[in-house]
Every structure is written in structure tokens, then in C-alpha cells.
Write a protein that binds this DNA or RNA. Structure first.
Length: 1002
RNA sequence: GCCCCGGUGGUGGAAUUGGUAGACACGCAGGACUUAAAAUCCUGUUGGCAGCAAUGCCAGUAACGGUUCAAUUCCGUUCCGGGGCACCA
């Protein structure tokens, strides 16, 4: 009886489907465990072997927990709104709903072949009405809530209105509030809502007709498609995630994420503690009597003489190092800063104007990329150091950004390298406040120096001086402590079609929330997916939609994925997004598995939504994911082949001018239109390397010349002209199936590669080598490996185990299909413990020996530990060790084998179930109980001790474990090899670690 | 530039708190079975030196140095690779 995995797997998959073996109940006396994979986007390309890595890991863990007696929720669904479907719709005219449905079907069939234990009854798709109804509902909760700074939590906006009506705010009195008209009230409330509308500079991409999030823009072009992106002012919806910045940061301490992940989130939030300090501004020096006369309206510098040279408005700077305030030698203000026009002196006006023009001419991209070049311009104005009244020149420079802090910094050249470079460039004298820590050649950002030249801070350690300076600044009323965050509020509008419509109507220019019983606001059908007028979304093109004054943008991709883990708990509830009782039962996701690419986007947004829902009392926990496991990427070799570049040119050859008549006679075409299909000349890697190194041998040169000759002569018959070779060659991506260990399989290449043409010429030595590098797996690199094919060829069980066997889940690693044979052999070997090819059944009911039990118990111990710690690769090798040992011991005993099957069920469920039923077991192996570890079989009485001389292993000696150190020493010293090394001398020391090793020091 | 993670045979990778480096596989080489192939099984496989051989010795976990009886593991410096952030004050 052979291991017929195709039959076994399809039969068991069918059985499990029919018996609803993966149905999960919300009502169970067993403890719960929630294992979740990151929401996949159902792309048209389908799955490649990189995708299921995390799914297999989570599936193994889920099945393991089930065997351990947990009620396990392990759902799957689809993040089905998104740009690619819409792009595809624009290109092909197919409705995104149709293509999405098709893609989901493909995904599901691919996933099912791998044998995952999903309860498909709980599947959710973000583009289903029954789902996005609740996305819209949560949006309304966000819209109708504000962040209360006193309680540091979200509260209903009604509470705020009540407060405004009763006691007003620091901006208006209660009486004023009550006299405001609706529009004014709306505007004030909009400043506090968690979902709000605002004008903002957004990344506008003309080609996609949409606004992109920061992380969707790469190097100034759109991530998808690479279209140019420009800044544009638009009215956008935003989520006030900045209100949660501190809580998002603090509660990172409560979750089990990797340090790298926490670090990324911390960087993104970018909290810094410092101070805002006001500096008096003096325009011109005191001998110069010119100053600003008008400070309101459109400000202009007026050339009049006035005695007072001080500006009423202070220069507000943000600094994290108030301890360095006596080392300030100049100020830098962002070129966009509103004070620039006010403080510029007439002398400097033309220089400043020139610099501003220069800055405007620079794209953001240039401003970011050119770090080394120092640019800037003096404004003519000075700030006054509030402590020592020193005059400090004010510059503008593009390295200071208007959007961060106050848009102005105090520059301390002895402590900050950028400031130092700037000072050198403009010959600004540098004040040294850190003594020997500053050597005059570079800045030193230390906090460990004792301050000098610093008035009341003299002799104080910088670290300590920060607090002292802050106290003084606050006491003098010239500034205050201030915490800054780098994070910005999250843009929540997309000028797109394939997303959730907003439950918002615009009435007299005011956004008005629709009521909950009007939900869902259904996404209407459109004929065209192009953008609407003025950059609005496609919905603006629908007359009825526009007439109903509906919001025309839709929600972004992360809307639906910010709360989907809640919907899985209660997917069919029509009266609420998720029943509180149910979410209290399932609570947080215990293990969340996915890639690092969602580190800052999805994870921060879903964490924020969870906090809001918690604040509003809708769920009972404020962090969605208890533990996060980051799966590594599966890479693949990208292979390149070098093709010589050459062009056919007629008429400028050495042989002279083309005889047009003769040419037409030969070819029936005018020479200008003649474009022959030229043979392609491919050169192998070592040859192209030699060419680069100018290391070409005579023989190599001859080969190339010959190839070129063949290529040219064929096409030159009777024609005057020549073929011109460009200098180099083009590396082209090869299909991975034509390459074996960097060697090109020329026959397969000729038959199957899209690059081959009938007249390809190959230039190489003994083997044709290709250039090969490790990169991503994907369609465009022609190296994607499809899991379906592997499941077909080796079975799902083999595929699952091989993916795990590749290496640690969290580590990125290259794919290599070859190794899969080893895992497949292992399963066949396991099968042969139960069945013989000829004799059939060979398993027996005999009592197992202690030695056999020991093999089993070792396996239980290792595999349980490895599964628990997500070390699935070592678990697979432990299975191999176990089966190898049982085979060697010729153990075919049910008592041992059935336990092995339970251990194996999470990893290879089909074969485990089949053999389990062959053993005559009633009931499903899916619900068997995990074998208990019985330590008594693992107790050893003796050990083969490694014996080292001076730490170097020389021999091993078998010793009983109950010997005392003295007895051990005696036995060790009697050993021949030890004697040999001692050369008759007494050892200096003998180190004995019980159960580990012996080391003799001589 | 800053932060995080990593570097182990031809390849993927093992190695509790420092305690027998290279488990388990792939590949390769040789052998058995077979008319042959597939499948299966057995043997070898870090490098170098010596030996008919069992074996022995030396070197060896990116490089160098340190701590220790003992270092892939801890510390320091450097190099290389991957990821994240970036004129962030």
C-alpha cells in the first residue's frame, strides 16, 4: 500500500468540509485562543509560495492549540477594496466587484488545497455591504467623538457641546457659543472631532486621479505605477491619530511585539521632549533705524526711520536641548515661516528674495536628497538671547522645515553638526560651551560635558542642566516645556471609486453625518472609473449622487482593515458591528502573524481604532494584538542574461552609400523602412565580466567576433551598410525555469523563454553562466513559484512541512524547490512505519519497549516546545529524527505511532488523519488530546561525558550520573588519553559540571 | 548619518542558562537492489596534514582583540549584508 497523498488529501478535505470540522462556536467552556493572519488583498496574480508561509505557521499553531484543549478562532477573509482592482477596471472596463469576486475565488481554492483549518462561515470581505455598513458606522462614531485632553480619551461630541453651552472654552464664552450660527458651531466642533475635515497639502497624483498617503509615495512618485506626484491643497477627511500619539507610544509596553517593530512605531510617532522658547527680535542693528511699521494685513517693509527697532512678535523656537542656550550663535527659520517677510531688512531683501526663489525652484525631493550642500541666507534681523542679551543673527535655510516644531531653531554649532557646517559656511563665530569636548573641527552632541561660558549653568553637567534651564525659562515666562510628535493626522479621503462611501452629506458647505439607520450607504454602480471634476472621485460623475449632496470621496484601504479582527468574532450580526459579549469572550488576538510591511500603517491605525472603540465602551480592551509574529519574506533568485546591444544601420558603413534601387530590388522595401529581425547575441557572465575588467583573451575575442560575424553576414547579403554595436549589453530577466544554479539550460531556453528568438547565438566557455541575485519573488522577475503545483506534485502535507523546514518563520530566506524532496521522503518513511508496499498493514498492537517510549517522549518534549515557541523548522527536524529512530528500531507499534500522529496533526493533518483512522481510532484526530510528556522515560542513568584538556575536546567517557565529583575525577584521570596528555604531571584543576562535561586543566 | 536585526560547510539551516560546532535536510560522491529506470536502502561528505586503516594532530562559526577552566554564545573595535528612519531641531 503506497502513500497516495492525492487521494488522501482530497478525501479528508472533503470529509472535513462536510462535517464542518472547522466550525468555531462563540460559546464554549474551553479557554479561547485567537490566532489571526494579516488580512490579504486578493490580487489577480494569485498566491506564490511566499504568501502561505505565515498562514501555515498560524494554521499549525491553531491546530496545536485545539489539540491542547482550546477553543480556537482562526478565521480568514479578504481586504477586498483597493486601488489595483480599480486600476484594472480602468484598464479593462471590468467592474471591480466582478474581478474581486473572481480573485477571491482563486485565492480560496488555492488556500483550501493547502488544507487550512479556517471556518469559512466567518469569512469577511471589506467590500461586502454587510461589512462596510459597520465600517461606516464606526466612522460615524469617530466623527461624533472628540478627544478629551483632561481624561485622555475619546468621548461623545455631545459632551463637548454641553460643556460649550454651559461654560464655553478658552476661545469663547458660553454666551458667545450660544449665539454662534450652525456653521460657526460646526467649524469649532470640527477642530475636535476624531474624524474631521480640513484643508491640507496632499500628495496629488494626476495619473491615478487620486490622493496618496505618505507611505504610498516613493521618491516623489506613486508607489504603484510610478506616476509623478505633486502637492495640492484639497479638502480632506482626517483621523485625529495625533491625539492618541502618547497612548499609542505608552501601550507599546503592554504588547508582545518584536523590538524592531516597536522601534519602528516609536520612530514613526517621533515623540520628543523639549521647550518652546521666545526670543525677542531686533530688525537691523541698533544704529540702523529702519523697521517695520505695519504689522497687520499684508506686511511690508517700509523704509522709514523710527527709533524703536524691536518687533512685537517674538521668534518662537523649538529645542530639545535648552541646556545649550548659551551656545546659540545664530537662528535658522524655515523659508516658508510667516515671519520671514517681516524681519527681513531692506539691505537683505533682494538676497532673501533670491534665496526664496531658489527654494521654490527646488522640489521636495531635491531638498531632501542634497544633504551635503549648505545653503541659507541672512535676514538682516537679530534675535536677543534672553539670558545674556547677546545679538543672534537670524538666517533662513531650507534644512529647517516649516511643518515641524515651530519652524525655527536655535543653532548651537559646537553641539550640532548641521549647525556647525552652517556656521563654517557663513563664517559665524562658534561659542564653545563644552570646553575640551569641542575641538573646533566638528560638533560634539554630547550630554556628558560640564558647561562653560553658560552663566548660571556654568559647572553643571549638561544632562542636569536641561531641567534647570527649563525651570528658569518657565519662571521667566519666556517659554514653556513642550512635547512634539513627528506623526501627522491620518488622511482618510481617497478620490477613488473602489472604497467605502462616507455616510456624509454636504449641506450648504457643511458636512452633516447621516443617521445610523440610513446605513449602509451603498456604493453605487458607475460606468467609468475616471476621476470626477476638480480632482474629485468617480462618484462625482454620478448625477444622483451629486444631487443628493453626498461626499464624493471614499475611505482608504486601511478603513476596513482597522477593525476586521472584531468582525470575525461575530460576522453575521445585523444589529451591531460585534456584540460586546462576544468580543469580551474572544478578547484580544492572541497571536497575529504577518509581514513587516504593515509595521507603521495598518498596525498603528488598527491600534488607534481599538483605543477609540475601547474609550467609547464598545469593546473591553484597548490593544488589538497581544503578540505579533513577523514572518520573513521568501526571496528567490532573480536571474539575468546579457544580450549585446546592437543596431542595424544602413548607408553609413565603410562600403559606402546604399544603392537604393538595388536594395528595393533585393528586399522589396525602401532601405529606410528595412528593419530585419536581428539574431540575438547572448554572452555568458564570465565573458561579460572579462570585458568589464578588460581581461579578454584572444580566444574570447575571437568567439565574440565570430558571433558578430554570423549575426551580420546573414543580414548583409547584397546590401551596403553595417550593423553598429553599442558599447554594452542589456541584462534581461530570465525565467527561473531555464536556469540551474546560475547555469543556463540553453535547450529549454530556446524552447520556452520569452526572450529566445529563432536565431539566438550564445557566446560562452564550457558552461553558459548567468548573473544571479537574491531578490523578491514576483511576476515581474519571472521567478514566482506557485503553491498549487507543489501541492499537486508532492501534496499539501509535504508543502506545509517544507515551508516550515526552510528556516525560522521570522527570518527572510530564499526559496529553493529542490529541498522539498527530503520532506516528502520523510512522510513516505512515516507511512512505511504503518504500511508495507507489498504486505500492507504492518503496525501492531504490541506493548512498546522503554527504548521506543523514549524515542516518543523525546519527540513530544521537543515538538511541544518548538511549536509553543514558533520554532517550526526545528520541530520538523525533530519529527524526522523521531521517524528515523523508530524506523531503525523497527518499531511499528500503535501505542507509539498513534501519539506521533497526534503530534503531527498540526503540521501534516491529512496523512495524520488517514493513518489515525487506519489504526482503527474512533473520532477525529483533530480533536485528539495532545500527548502528555512522561519524564520517567527520559531519565538517564549514565552519560557519555565529553572530556576536554584545557577546553579542547580529547575524548569521551561514559560515566554513571550518580557519581560524586571525586569519583569522576578518579575515573577521568585513569583514562588513557587523559594520561597521555598529562605526561605524568598532576592536573592543575579539574572542572566537572554534572550532566554536561569534564575539563582537565594542565 | 542615526536606529534595529543578522554574518556558522557547496546550499537551507541546528546548537537550553557559555559546556562535544555543523543536528535535520538538500546537493554531491561511492555502493546495494533492478535487464534498466523510478522508488528504496547503505556509506562518505568543514578544511588541511599524516596514515593501508581504525585513527591522530592542526585550523575553523565575517575579521581582530578581550573576559573565562571553557566563547557561535558575553564585552570592545572593524568590515560586510538586510530592514527602518532621515536636514525632526
Amino acid at each position: 500500500m503506497e502513500y497516495d497523498f492525492r487521494k488522501i488529501e482530497s478525501e479528508w478535505q472533503k470529509k472535513w468540509k462536510e462535517s464542518k470540522a472547522y466550525k468555531v462556536s462563540n460559546d464554549s467552556p474551553r479557554p479561547k485562543c485567537y490566532v489571526l493572519d494579516m488580512f490579504p488583498y486578493p490580487s489577480g496574480a494569485g498566491l506564490h509560495v511566499g504568501h502561505p508561509l505565515g498562514y501555515i505557521a498560524s494554521d499549525i499553531y491553531s491546530r496545536y492549540k485545539r489539540l491542547k484543549g482550546f477553543n480556537v478562532l482562526h478565521p480568514m477573509g479578504f481586504d477586498s477594496f483597493g486601488l489595483p482592482a480599480e486600476q484594472y477596471a480602468i484598464e479593462t472596463g471590468q467592474h471591480p466587484a466582478d474581478t474581486t469576486e473572481k480573485n477571491i475565488a482563486t485565492f480560496k481554492s488555492q488556500l483550501d488545497k493547502i488544507g487550512f483549518c479556517y471556518d469559512w462561515d466567518r469569512e469577511v470581505c471589506t467590500s461586502d455591504e454587510s461589512y462596510y455598513k459597520w465600517t461606516q458606522w464606526i466612522f460615524l462614531q469617530l466623527f461624533n467623538s472628540y478627544f478629551c485632553n483632561t481624561q485622555q480619551k475619546a468621548r461623545p461630541i455631545a459632551d463637548l457641546i454641553k460643556k460649550y453651552e454651559g461654560q464655553g472654552s478658552k476661545h469663547f464664552t458660553a454666551a458667545e457659543w450660544n449665539s454662534f450660527n450652525e456653521k460657526e458651531k460646526t467649524e469649532w466642533l470640527m477642530k475636535r472631532r476624531l474624524a474631521f475635515i480640513a484643508w491640507g497639502e496632499v500628495n496629488w497624483c494626476e495619473a491615478l486621479g487620486t490622493v496618496l498617503a505618505n507611505d504610498e509615495v516613493v521618491n516623489g512618485v506613486s508607489e504603484r505605477g510610478g506616476h509623478p506626484v505633486v502637492k495640492k491643497k484639497m479638502r480632506q477627511w482626517y483621523l485625529r491619530i495625533t491625539a492618541y500619539a502618547d497612548r499609542l507610544l505608552q501601550s507599546l509596553e503592554t504588547v508582545n511585539f518584536s523590538d524592531a517593530m516597536k522601534e519602528m512605531q516609536k520612530n514613526w510617532i517621533g515623540k520628543s521632549e523639549g521647550a518652546e522658547v521666545d526670543f525677542e527680535i531686533q530688525v537691523g542693528d541698533s544704529s540702523d533705524k529702519r523697521v517695520v511699521t505695519q504689522l497687520t494685513g499684508d506686511i511690508e517693509l517700509v523704509d522709514v526711520t523710527i527709533m524703536d527697532t524691536h518687533l512685537d512678535i517674538p521668534l518662537k523656537v523649538y529645542t530639545t536641548r535648552p541646556d545649550t542656550i548659551f551656545g546659540v550663535d545664530f537662528m535658522v527659520v524655515a523659508p516658508e515661516h510667516e515671519l520671514v517677510s517681516q524681519i527681513t531688512t531692506p539691505d537683505q531683501k533682494s538676497a532673501i528674495d533670491e534665496y526664496l526663489t531658489y527654494v521654490k525652484s527646488r522640489s521636495d525631493r531635491e531638498r531632501m536628497s542634497e544633504v551635503k550642500q549648505v545653503t541659507g541666507c541672512f535676514t538682516g534681523a537679530y534675535a536677543i538671547n534672553p539670558f545674556n542679551k547677546k545679538q543672534i543673527p537670524i538666517y533662513i535655510a531650507e534644512y529647517v522645515l516649516a511643518g515641524y516644531g515651530t519652524g525655527a531653531i536655535m543653532a548651537v554649532p559646537c553641539g550640532d553638526q548641521r549647525d556647525f557646517d552652517f556656521a563654517k559656511h557663513f563664517n559665524i563665530p562658534v561659542t564653545n560651551i563644552i570646553g575640551s569636548y569641542y575641538d573646533g573641527s566638528a560638533a560634539n552632541p554630547t550630554k556628558e560635558a560640564i558647561l562653560e561660558n553658560s552663566d548660571f549653568l556654568n559647572g553643571v553637567l549638561m544632562k542636569d542642566a536641561i531641567g534647570i534651564a527649563l525651570d528658569k525659562i518657565e519662571a521667566l515666562g519666556i517659554g514653556k516645556r513642550k512635547v512634539n510628535f513627528r506623526m501627522r493626522d491620518a488622511g482618510f479621503s481617497r478620490q477613488r471609486y473602489w472604497g467605502e462611501p462616507f455616510p456624509i452629506k454636504w449641506i450648504d458647505g457643511v458636512p452633516v453625518a447621516m443617521s445610523e439607520n440610513e446605513l449602509p450607504v451603498k456604493l453605487p454602480h458607475v460606468e467609468k472609473y475616471g476621476p470626477g471634476p476638480e480632482g474629485e472621485g468617480p462618484l462625482a460623475n454620478i448625477p444622483e449622487w451629486a444631487a443628493a449632496q453626498m461626499e464624493t470621496s471614499t475611505m482608504p484601504g486601511y478603513a476596513g482593515s482597522s477593525w476586521y479582527f472584531l468582525r470575525y468574532m461575530d460576522p453575521h450580526n445585523n444589529s451591531t458591528f460585534c456584540d460586546r459579549k462576544v468580543s469580551d469572550y474572544w478578547n484580544q488576538v492572541d497571536v497575529y502573524i504577518g509581514g513587516t510591511e504593515h509595521a507603521v500603517g495598518h498596525l498603528l491605525y488598527s491600534r488607534m481604532w481599538t483605543k477609540v472603540l475601547f474609550d467609547l465602551g464598545l469593546i473591553g480592551f484597548d490593544e488589538p494584538f497581544k503578540k505579533l509574529v513577523n514572518q520573513g519574506m521568501i526571496g528567490a533568485h532573480i536571474n539575468y542574461i546579457n544580450r549585446l546591444d546592437y543596431n542595424y544601420k544602413i548607408g553609413d558603413g565603410a562600403s559606402g552609400i546604399v544603392n537604393v534601387e538595388k536594395f528595393i530590388e533585393n528586399y522589396g522595401i525602401h532601405p529606410d523602412q528595412y528593419k530585419p529581425e536581428l539574431p540575438q547575441i547572448f554572452i555568458s557572465k564570465e565573458l561579460s565580466d572579462k570585458i568589464v575588467d578588460e581581461n579578454l583573451s584572444k580566444a574570447d575575442e575571437q568567439k565574440l567576433t565570430d558571433a558578430i560575424k554570423i549575426a551580420t553576414t546573414d543580414y548583409m547579403k547584397g546590401v551596403a551598410g553595417k550593423i553598429e554595436f553599442d558599447e554594452g549589453w542589456k541584462p534581461l530577466v530570465l525565467e527561473s525555469f531555464v536556469v540551474n544554479d546560475s547555469v543556463l539550460d540553453i535547450d529549454t531556453f530556446k524552447q520556452k523563454s520569452r526572450l529566445a528568438n529563432s536565431k539566438s547565438i550564445f557566446v560562452y566557455d564550457d558552461k553558459f553562466y548567468c548573473h544571479s541575485e537574491l531578490g523578491k519573488m514576483g511576476k515581474r522577475y519571472h521567478n514566482a513559484v506557485n503553491p498549487d503545483e507543489l501541492c499537486e506534485k508532492y501534496g499539501a502535507d509535504t508543502f506545509r512541512m517544507y515551508e516550515m523546514f526552510l528556516g525560522p518563520v521570522e527570518q527572510s530566506k530564499p526559496w529553493d524547490t529542490k529541498g522539498i524532496e527530503g520532506v516528502h521522503r520523510f512522510l513516505k518513511k512515516l507511512w512505511r512505519l504503518f504500511n508495507d508496499e507489498l504486505k500492507g498493514k504492518i503496525w501492531k498492537d504490541d506493548k512498546a519497549t522503554d527504548a521506543e517510549m523514549k524515542i516518543l517522549q523525546q519527540a513530544i518534549k521537543k515538538i511541544e516546545h518548538n511549536t509553543e515557541t514558533f520554532s517550526f523548522n526545528t520541530a520538523v527536524s525533530s519529527f524526522m529524527v523521531c521517524v528515523n529512530e523508530l524506523s531503525d528500531a523497527k518499531c511499528h507499534k500503535k501505542e507509539v505511532l498513534e501519539k506521533v500522529l497526534i503530534l503531527l496533526t498540526p503540521y501534516a493533518p491529512h496523512i495524520a488523519a488517514e493513518l489515525w483512522s487506519q489504526l482503527g481510532n474512533e473520532g477525529s484526530v483533530l480533536d485528539a488530546s495532545y500527548p502528555m510528556l512522561e519524564e520517567k522515560y527520559l531519565v538517564e542513568t549514565s552519560k557519555e561525558y565529553p572530556v576536554s584538556i584545557n577546553g579542547k575536546l580529547r575524548t569521551t567517557i561514559a560515566l554513571s550520573l550518580d557519581l560524586d565529583p571525586k569519583q569522576v575525577e578518579e575515573l577521568v584521570l585513569q583514562n588513557d588519553i587523559v594520561q597521555k596528555w598529562l605526561e605524568g604531571n598532576a592536573p592543575k584543576k579539574i572542572i566537572f559540571v554534572k550532566g554536561k562535561m569534564v575539563n582537565v586543566v594542565i
